[in-house]
Simulated scan of single mutants.
Amino acid sequence: MNTAEILKTFGLEPRETRIYLALLASGPASIRDIADRASINRGTTHELLKRMQQKGIVSLFPKGKRRHFSAEPPSRLKELALKHQDQVTEAMELLEEKVIPQLAHLQPASGNADVHYYEDDDGIELVLKDILSTVSEQQERSYCVYSAKAIRKHLYRPFPNYTRQRVKLGINVKVIAIGEGGEEAELADRKWIDEESSENAGSYIAIYPPKVALISLSEGDLPTAVVIQSPTIAKTHQVIFDTLWNSL
């Protein structure tokens, strides 16, 4: 992550970063000089400087009749980061306590399963993150999966540190591996089904009540996924998994 990406995390957009870096290098400068150094038109530069003043990272520097600006010391960026962190923490608390419950009431009450479809690496990454997020909120942090040999090398491609994150969250997993292979991992129990036909089984099924995720490979080895949110469906899959697990 470079400097611009880090500062963007704390609320400084890329053009503001260019202006700040230009001011650090030049010292106090006029709007025209700043615009030239940052390669941004003067009108936009003026508007951005006003926003940066509010953020406390640039200040007016009197020099004759013309308005000049100067960059605050880089240490001021830490104050910006801490302020942003406080705002995010407050927003997260409000999201958890008020926003999510209010939005949940907008959903119609229904006994039907809630089904979502995802595709490509970005979609699979969302599903994997959903597994960790959902299970980490439960009292018993554990879930179960069927993992076929053909999909293993593609599954974690968009989220290579998935297992490390799972272990960090203290989440246990039971794995029924279809076909040989599958590495041992911390907080994971694994059993195998050695089937000759396993080469054609290219799917991964995660059971994490109240959800079930079914991930498979489409043409070109691109993964697709369907996530079903239904306590009854998840419970049925859990019973089937437990029965098979105890028989292996």
Rank of each mutant, 00 (worst) to 15 (best):
A4D: 12
T9R: 14
T9H: 09
L12P: 06
R15K: 15
R18M: 07
L23T: 06
I31H: 08
I34Y: 04
A35L: 08
A35Q: 07
D36R: 15
R37W: 07
I40K: 02
T45C: 13
H46W: 08
M52G: 05
K55N: 11
S59K: 11
L60Q: 15
P62H: 07
K63T: 07
S70K: 10
P73V: 06
R76T: 08
A81T: 06
H84I: 04
Q85N: 08
Q85D: 11
D86H: 05
M92L: 15
M92V: 13
L95R: 05
E97Q: 14
E97L: 13
H105Y: 05
P108Q: 05
D114P: 08
V115F: 08
H116G: 03
Y117H: 14
E119Q: 11
G123H: 04
E125N: 12
K129P: 01
I131T: 06
T134K: 10
V135Y: 07
E137P: 02
Q138T: 08
Q139H: 12
Y143H: 09
C144L: 13
Y146Q: 00
P158Q: 00
F159L: 11
P160K: 01
T163E: 15
R166E: 07
I171K: 10
N172K: 14
V175N: 09
I178L: 09
E184T: 07
E184A: 08
A188C: 11
D194S: 14
E196Q: 13
S197G: 15
S198A: 15
N200M: 11
A201Q: 11
K211I: 05
V212N: 04
L214G: 03
I215E: 00
L217H: 03
S218E: 10
S218C: 07
T224S: 11
I228H: 06
T232S: 14
V239W: 00
T243A: 03
L248A: 05
